[in-house]
Amino acid sequence: MPKKILIVEDEANIRELLRLYLEREGYTVIEAENGVEGIKKWKSEKPDMLLLDVMMPVMDGWAVCKEIRAESDVPIIMLTAKGETADRVSGLEMGADDYIVKPLEMPEVIARVRAVFRRMAPDDAPEKLSFDNLVIDKQAYDLVIRGKRVDAPPKEIELLYYLASSPNRVFTRAQLLDDVWGFDYFGDTRTVDVHVKRLREKLEGVSDKWELKTVWGVGYKFETKE
C-alpha cells in the first residue's frame, strides 16, 4: 500500500508542486490549506508523514506540531521560509523530525521523505540493543526505559541506536548527520545537538552503567561503564 503524506501549506502553488512530485514517486497525497484543517485531516486520514508549513493563517505550524506531538510520533518535516538557526532549532525542540528551508528544491524534498521512510522500514531481523534499564528496538522503533515504552520520534531512536551500537566510540556531529540522516544533509550540525538534548531529557538518571556523553570539541558517544 502506498505511503500517505499530508501536506499542510497555505500557498496553493506550493501544495500543487509538492503533490505532483510526491505522486510521481508513488505516494498518496492529502492536502490542507491551514493548521486547523491539517489537524482535522491528520485525525481522519492518519497519514504516514506530514509536510508542515510554519507560517500559516488560523493556526501556524509550530502549534500544529505541538498538538500532534502530544498524541503521536508520526514523522513531521517542517517547511519554513525562516532560515535562522534559532527558528530551525525551535522546530526540532518541538518534536519536528526535519526541516526544509524555502524556496523548496524538489530533489531535496524527495530525498528527505525517502530517508525518513527508509529509517522507519523494518529489517528482516529484529535489531534490538539492551542495556541496564534500557532497550532500543530499531525495528519496532520502540524505546523502553525501566520496562516502560517511552514515546520518541523515529530520528531520536535511530540516533540513540546508532551511538549505542558502538559503545565508547566517539562520533563527530558530521558523521552522525551523514550516517543517521542517511543522505547529504542540508542543515547544520546543531541538529545533532538538539536531538541529543531531547534524548538526555528522557534518559536522565536511568542508569549509572552507561551515559550519553559529550566529548567536547569532537562529538558524542554512548559510554558504558564497568
Rank of each mutant, 00 (worst) to 15 (best):
K4V: 04
L6A: 03
I7N: 00
N13G: 03
I14Y: 11
R15C: 13
R15H: 06
R15V: 09
E16W: 11
R19Q: 01
Y21T: 03
Y21D: 02
L22H: 06
E23M: 06
E23W: 03
G26I: 02
G26A: 00
Y27K: 00
Y27G: 00
T28E: 09
I30T: 03
G38T: 06
I39T: 11
K40Q: 13
K40I: 12
W42K: 01
K43L: 09
K43C: 03
P47I: 02
D48G: 03
L50C: 07
L50P: 04
L51E: 02
L52T: 07
L52V: 13
M55T: 13
G61V: 13
A63D: 15
A63I: 12
C65Y: 08
K66G: 14
E67T: 13
E67K: 14
I68D: 08
S72R: 07
D73T: 01
I77C: 09
I77G: 05
M78A: 05
M78D: 08
L79A: 10
A81D: 12
K82M: 14
G83D: 10
G83P: 09
T85A: 08
A86W: 14
D87T: 15
R88T: 10
G91N: 10
E93F: 04
M94R: 10
G95Y: 00
D97M: 05
D97L: 08
D98S: 08
V101Q: 15
V101A: 13
K102Q: 15
P103L: 14
L104R: 04
M106S: 04
M106W: 03
E108L: 15
V109D: 10
V109L: 09
A121M: 11
A121K: 14
P122E: 02
E127S: 15
N133Q: 12
L134K: 01
V135Y: 06
I136S: 09
K138W: 09
Q139R: 14
A140S: 11
A140V: 10
Y141H: 14
V144K: 04
V144D: 01
G147H: 07
K148A: 13
E158V: 02
A164V: 04
S165N: 15
S166F: 15
N168E: 11
R169M: 10
F171R: 02
L176E: 00
L177D: 01
W181I: 05
G187M: 05
G187I: 08
T191A: 11
D193A: 06
V194Y: 00
V194T: 06
V196E: 01
K197I: 02
L199D: 06
E204K: 08
S207T: 06
D208M: 05
K209V: 06
K209Q: 12
K209C: 05
L212Q: 04
T214V: 04
T214G: 03
G217P: 06
Y220S: 01
F222T: 04
F222S: 02
E223N: 09
T224G: 11
K225Y: 12
E226D: 15
